[in-house]
Design a protein around this nucleic acid. Structure first.
Lengths: 209, 209
DNA sequence: GTCTATAAGAAGATAGAC
DNA sequence: GTCTATCTTCTTATAGAC
């Protein structure tokens, strides 16, 4: 369990601190202290504070791609697996939403990374582009693709898929934001997620004639 | 037009910088430079950098309360003006949503303040509570109240008002976030807001028998 | 790979001239 | 109310002993 290298522990503690205070507000000494070493020792593992940040970014990209594949959130995979998605029923939709919600909220790396990007997006075009891509555009375009398939399969009433994706995902995004600094809200938020998706299913599900 | 006091200009420039970089990443010298004075001169107007931040907070509270009243977003007012809200039709709903969206996005003070709070919420219980109250809880509970009245008035199908509020407001919140660092998205976002609200009205509006 | 010591600079803030 | 000069502390980062 304690097999993390010092390099990995530096990245972990740095991310924790960056996610709470922002990059510039965290000192190298703070990071080192959290790891249990002195600041100069840290420079044996990373050439600069900026380099720690850059490596966290790379690490996250890699983890995100893995998770996207495992959640079947990758657009490429979805088009290959039409059979899977065109058979989605309400309960599976609830599971999909809860999985996405739980991942963004509780995966220790993903959750902190999202908070860090939320903070850092405002002073870098690159970071704001990454934030938008990862937490807005990709979830929306993926959901849009899924709902398009569900309409084709006769599971949902015909409707603009992007509007459906916005209706489905935006409440998850808002509830996520509401839990970020208030863990005591998580239970209620999970209930809201479920209610929301069941309402979504009721409103858009194919009506019997 | 140029009647702003130095004190007011300091707050203005400080907010602009805080909204982009966060409080700790901005130096007093940077703020002073943006105003056109030297750092020590700034201390004749504010006793510390923290004090500038605190005054921005107070200023915003005051402006927010004014705007809430003018947008009729104040819960107290709404219950007094049942007549107004129980007569809301689809077009008025669109206007209400667009007004809210436009205010959060374009009011120079409100927009920067929201970005600053988005950054600062993570390292202070007080600020995260303020963020949640101002951008999540109050909009939602206000919308919830409005929709409850609309159901009573027979304008909407019976439904949990909080679920309706989440359905109505969450997409506005997400689209707002998507425009924050990407002004080129605003036009599309406004179109999406309108489409979203018309869909909302179509889905929840009282069906004719 | 860790440490102490230290450089070189930037930070918040004050003193005092004008 | 503005400035220059200055203080103190903290910052990132390096040098070199162990």
């Amino acid at each position: 369990m304690e097999k993390l290298s010092t390099r990995q522990r530096i990245m972990q503690e740095a991310l924790t601190l960056f996610a709470e205070n922002g990059f510039e507000a965290v000192s190298v000494a703070q990071i080192a202290s959290a790891v249990g070493i002195k600041a100069p020792s840290l420079y044996k593992h990373f050439e600069s504070k900026q380099h720690i940040f850059d490596e966290i970014l790379l690490e996250m990209q890699s983890r995100y791609e893995q998770k996207a594949a495992s959640l079947q959130m990758n657009g490429m995979e979805a088009t290959k697996d039409i059979a899977v998605f065109s058979g989605l029923d309400e309960q599976q939709l609830v599971e999909m939403g809860k999985n996405l919600f739980d991942y963004f909220l509780h995966d220790t790396f993903a959750s902190k990374f999202r908070r860090m990007l939320t903070i850092e997006q405002y002073h870098s075009r690159d970071l704001s582009a990454l934030y938008t891509k990862q937490y807005l555009d990709e979830p929306l375009s993926y959901q849009s693709l899924v709902f398009g398939l569900m309409i084709q399969a006769g599971l949902l009433e015909p409707e603009d898929p992007m509007l459906l994706a916005l209706h489905f995902y935006a409440p998850l995004f808002l509830l996520l934001t509401s839990c970020d600094c208030h863990p005591e809200r998580e239970e209620k938020a999970f209930q809201m997620v479920e209610q929301h998706i069941r309402q979504f299913s009721r409103l858009h599900g194919k009506k019997e004639l």
